[in-house]
Nucleic acid binder design. Structure first.
Length: 486
RNA sequence: GCGCCUCUAGCUCAACGGCAGAGCAACGGACUCUUAAUCCGCAGGUUCUGGGUUCGAAUCCCAGGGGGCGCACCA
């Protein structure tokens, strides 16, 4: 794409060299609130320095009005030949230029709060245009690739990223207030584990060994619980080598936390309080709309078992005791491509995902997954063949995955062995035996509840975004090919 | 990976087989209270790329590239 290189500001440089530092002493928002009562046509003696980008400009002969925007909002600059230094040059500023302006706070006769510019300096030139001054940039590719331009041009983009920052910060405080300790665990893993996903592989030269970018921090966080951190959490960037979609980015952020002495029902309470609390904090209500559809995030959320939900939505009464042949038939008639190695647990999960999950709007905790598909969760206390695991569906999507953690080292070893067998027979996402993790469990992991929450999805939910890319500053894209005219 | 859609001026979009256009931005000018200022003027193109059909292609066809959406996979 070609760009406009500004033809030297009509031969006269607006300023020779931007300053190295400056001290703006007012923001647009602060001025607006401080001078709310200033009447039209009134002037103050208060001299301020504001800084930001020129967004709009209206030339009126010997007067120039410009709209300056800083991170707090916008304010008008009011320049006039009679009182503004370098007035001619002021009128030649481009939309998008950064400037600092000093002058008195006034309200114009037509009622616009303004800084009456005495002195000003150009801080940076915008050689490229920010697009249509009214419609901004809407080309999706340009928006994500040139996020710096998108963020200036589109209020919605800014708003989503700001909300992301605030949600993460609020979550951190919220957890710390409850005694959780934030930790950092390795991103390089000698073997991928803690989730079913294909990893990215890299290589360490000095150790001459392959390392995997983590697909989940889970196993390290539980090692920390073994080590005595009774309540830990990590806001972890994780990496999964899978397809891109409006809801999937290869790197995404997961909040994982582990709480000793808790079980999965405690995790249900916790996620309800987290999501409802964040909604209350940032939207002022737990009654939200997502994609035009109503959603009530207030606790408590519905709790139902996977088999109950299948019966409700698919009309099939199936569970782990259903004869394998019948399960296979139900799965096939639901459109699942059944593979030979699948046991009843896998079939049940597939039936659920195909027939039921998409029609759930939520919020609902889908409880009690088959043990066969949950290698890290503890056996259900009363339902043989199931584990104490739940996923919460909110706005039709999986928001979190949690369980009463498996704490028995022998059972964990057996589960890993099953996984290793699945991997050997071609399941690329199956886990491998993690000897060190089993060893950690042999030192004793107390009963523990754990949960992983998709942070990007939480932000999407509260910002009413339908694309994960909207809540990630720099989403993964195919690398751009640069040519001479880009 | 497969299917469908899409790509025209810096930006947002028209033209849909018959002279490539508009608004905004840019550039020159007028204007002492504008608010997407207004007005006058001027300039701006490998219509994503390559090939084909046609008297004639931005438009139809084929191949490639970028992007979007859906499916698959997943959170």
């Amino acid at each position: 794409m070609a760009f406009r290189r500004r033809p030297d500001v009509r031969g006269v440089p607006v300023s020779l060299e931007p300053p190295y530092r400056l001290a703006p002493d007012a923001t647009a928002a602060a001025l607006a609130s401080r001078h709310r009562d200033l009447g039209a046509g009134e002037e103050t003696n208060e001299t301020v320095t504001v800084a930001g980008r020129i967004m709009l400009r209206r030339e009126m002969g010997k007067l120039v009005f410009a709209t300056l925007r800083d991170s707090s909002g916008g304010i008008q600059l009011f320049a006039g030949a009679k009182w503004t230094a370098d007035f001619e040059a002021f009128g030649r500023l481009s939309l998008g230029d950064w400037i600092a302006a000093t002058g008195e706070v006034v309200r114009t006769r037509t009622g616009e709060l303004s800084v009456k510019v005495r002195e000003w300096v150009q801080l940076a030139e915008a050689r490229r245009s920010f697009g249509d001054k009214f419609r901004g940039i809407s080309d999706v590719d340009t928006r994500y690739r040139q996020r710096y331009a998108d963020l200036w041009a589109n209020e919605e983009s800014r708003r989503a990223l700001l909300l992301r920052s605030r949600i993460i910060s609020w979550t951190r405080r919220w957890l710390e207030d409850q005694g959780f300790v934030e930790v950092e665990t390795p991103i390089f893993h000698p073997m991928p584990g803690g989730a079913a996903a294909r990893p990215f592989v890299t290589h360490h030269n000095a150790l001459d060994t392959d390392l995997y970018l983590r697909i989940a921090p889970e196993l390290y966080l539980k090692r920390l619980v073994v080590g005595g951190f009774e309540r830990v959490f990590e806001i972890a960037r994780v990496f999964r080598n899978e397809g891109l979609s409006p809801r999937h980015n290869p790197e995404f952020t997961m909040l994982e936390l582990y709480q000793a002495y808790a079980d999965y029902t405690d995790m249900m309470d916790l996620v309800e309080r987290l999501v409802a609390g964040a909604a209350e904090e940032f939207l002022g209500t737990t009654e939200v709309t997502y994609g035009g559809r109503e959603l009530s995030l207030g606790a408590p959320w519905r709790r139902a078992t996977m088999t109950e939900l299948i019966e409700e939505h698919a009309g099939s009464k199936v569970d782990l005791n259903t004869p394998a042949e019948e399960l296979r038939q139900v799965a096939q008639s639901a459109g699942v491509r059944v593979e030979p190695g699948w046991g009843p647990g896998k079939l049940l999960l597939e039936i659920f995902e195909k027939t039921t999950e998409a029609s759930l709007w939520g919020p609902v905790h889908v409880m009690d997954y088959p043990k066969e598909v949950s290698p890290l969760a503890r056996d259900h206390r009363s339902r043989p063949g199931y584990v104490e695991r739940f996923e919460s569906i909110v706005a039709g999507r999986e928001l979190c995955n949690a369980f009463s953690e498996l704490i028995d080292p022998d059972e964990q070893r057996a589960r890993f062995e099953d996984q290793a067998r699945a991997k050997a027979s071609g399941d690329e996402e199956a886990m491998a035996m993690d000897e060190d993790y089993v060893r950690a469990l042999e030192y004793g992991l107390p009963p523990t509840g754990g949960i992983g929450v998709g942070v990007d999805r939480l932000v999407m939910l509260l910002s009413d975004s339908d694309a994960i890319r909207d809540v990630i500053a720099f989403p993964t894209l195919r690398p751009e090919i640069f040519t001479s005219d880009t």
